[in-house]
Design a protein around this nucleic acid. Sequence first.
DNA 1: CAGTGAGCGAGCTTCCGCTTGACTT
Length: 799
Amino acid sequence: MAKNLVIVESPAKAKTIEKFLGKDYQVMSSFGHIRDLEKNKLGVDLEHGYKPNYVIPPDKKKVVSQLKKAAASADKVLLASDEDREGEAISWHLAEALNLDMSKTERIVFHEITQGAINRAIKNPRTINYNLVYAQQARRVLDRLVGYELSPLLWKKVKPSLSAGRVQSVAVRLIVEREEDVKKFTPAAHFKVTADFDANGKVLSTELSRRLKESKESRQFLEHCSGASFEVSQVEKKPGKKSPAAPFTTSTLQQEASRKLGFSVSKTMMVAQKLYESGQITYMRTDSVTLSKSAREMAREEILKEFGEKYHKSRTYATKSKGAQEAHEAIRPTYINKRDASGDRDMKRLYELIRKRTIASQMSDAQLEKTNVHVDISGHQEQFIGRGEVIVFDGFLKVYMESRDEDEPGENQQGLLPPIKKGEKLNAKEIHAIERFSKHPPRYTEAALVKKMEELGIGRPSTYAPTISTIQKREYVVKEDRDGIKQKYLHLALKDNKIREKEKHEKTGYEKNKLFPTDIGILVNKFLMSYFENIVDYNFTAQVESRIDKIAAGQEEWNKMIHDFYGAFHATIQKTEETTERFRGERLLGKDPGTGKNVYAKVGRYGPMIQMGDTESEEKPRFAGLRKGQSLQEITLEEALESFRFPKELGEYEDKIMVSAIGRFGPYVRHDSKFFSIPKDEDPLEITKERAIELIEEKRKRDREKTINIFTGEGEQKEIKVLKGRYGPYIVYEKKNYRIPKEQDPQALSYEDCLKIVETSGKTTRKTPKKKTGSSRAKSTSRKKKKTTGKSTTSGKKS
DNA sequence: CAGTGAGCGAGCTTCCGCTTGACTT
């Protein structure tokens, strides 16, 4: 019997709603978009109204053919992709790619996966909203034009394989500019004065109402205090309250998982994906803070059961972020009464976070009482102030408290203050004046960058994590720990009427897992800021979005919007290409005292480097890559000259010469045409003959340990190695790796056994792609040898 | 996967947003 076919975007969703729909419905998944602009070309016809050329990517062929088959035998096809721009486009692409009969096709949408919502959706089908499809198309084409015209310009002017785009380039700009702010920053010193008073046997800790500027002023103040008397002049109490944070979106989940669990952005998404696939949480890529009615009801029951009526407050939240499309619910447990997740430790921890946040969002405010105690100082107009905060009613705090980023203000206060009355005289036990320094703005963590991007409306829940990995992969930014610097500070203390003064040291400015721009990132940003300021403008996306909204509302043609943008943009591309030189960030460091040649720091084809001598001169210049920790901006002539002490001869070992140098992958020792890496915490200039021999022997030992067997090839035979690696034993043959089937004992394999394994698994890897067999970037497991995709008659669009 | 870097010129790289596995050394 023919069924109705429902197509959704995600297989996990398909599985869930299949249960609600009964046997007349078959539910399948499209796995996201099924068509896209062709990958290796612009894919946009500039001469004919920017007509997009859509193709089915190789990894989607299988899904599309399966869907096609199912659609052909179905009574009716229901397109149930998400109700946003991208979702609408997916439905349209499905209709096109599957060749659907539109008289038997319906478009349905639902925001939550419940029986009621799905029934309602089925009863209220609509047709495809072409305005939304055009809006998505405009977004897609614009991003393609920006990315595919800017990137090649970078290859020419800066360095091959770089990339630029509407989203990633702004992310890089944020990090570059924050680093500039950090570098520009000069810490200002001040003295923080605190006093501990004896309040009827208990300690009252207070801080002076004003921070003092200098050590002299602090000294004078302490001297004054040593003879002064102290009296409580005021005790004020005011009520306060705290409210819970909204349920999680992708962005806030990434931030909290980073702060509370130390997860990277991509780790959070991987763990959340596992929870989603096992049916334990709702969809994890969302910009919505909305909880469905049934979810709020579940939360209410949990709260009543566990804490009682007093702790419950039904709340709805409104999204604040720009450009939110709210096709899904907030991230929450599927069943809020399920206390613990099943799965590994990370899954359990993330689930607990999500569950607590969800429940807290439906709980009452916490009621606080804030107390400020003012202490007068005789003969001085400043006061000491003690701040206390007591929780009168804990409310949602019983369950969950959102953490703060380091740049967000927080009051330093204590809990309960000792009982104290106005007019009471106090004795100061100790008074301290400690020198403090203002802090530079914090560098971004991954999660803090996501937060900023969301504020600017740049990127989407599905792209935050990939964007962050792209800018790291391009080596525009690096995630690093950096050691702080030792800072000295002055500590003045008044105790028992004696003032003591001490110079102390502290480590400050330690950075963990922060994003730093690289030389390349800084240079590319400078290039874009010079010639394409509008693209890296923080408001560019917002402006684009408002035009796209007009398209979605049917008030503007999508290709008119593209045309308005493209004219000026393309002209700038051409002009920049023709009129500018290579953009190398070149700095003349000085002259080499030995030869009198100029020494430059600049970016070359392989990255930042030092050049000695001029390219125009007869003699070829010498080159050297930058070493770890060096930067184009800061390297000095002296440091640069050191790099030319490579390659450096270290002496002989086993009758072969040893040489240290710095290569593509960092410093190394070469011996007998083999390479031995120098650990990155060692200075390659300091490597001695003895240390080099150690490195060689250590590497040999490691190799021996991972070797199971070696067959040295003779005559026709090639060498075969059986090794054990991270993923179990494997075979190396002609520089390629092959996995050994589980049932075979790697120890016992003969040469012929190995060859057999190589041959049988040979189908997965192709060596040299002949012409253009499409981008076989991953291992395409298709057994069919496809002919080249026909000669595409490249339309000579640019004459 | 390792000693590059100028220049010659072939052929390659690249975007953002939807969504999961297949596979890694």
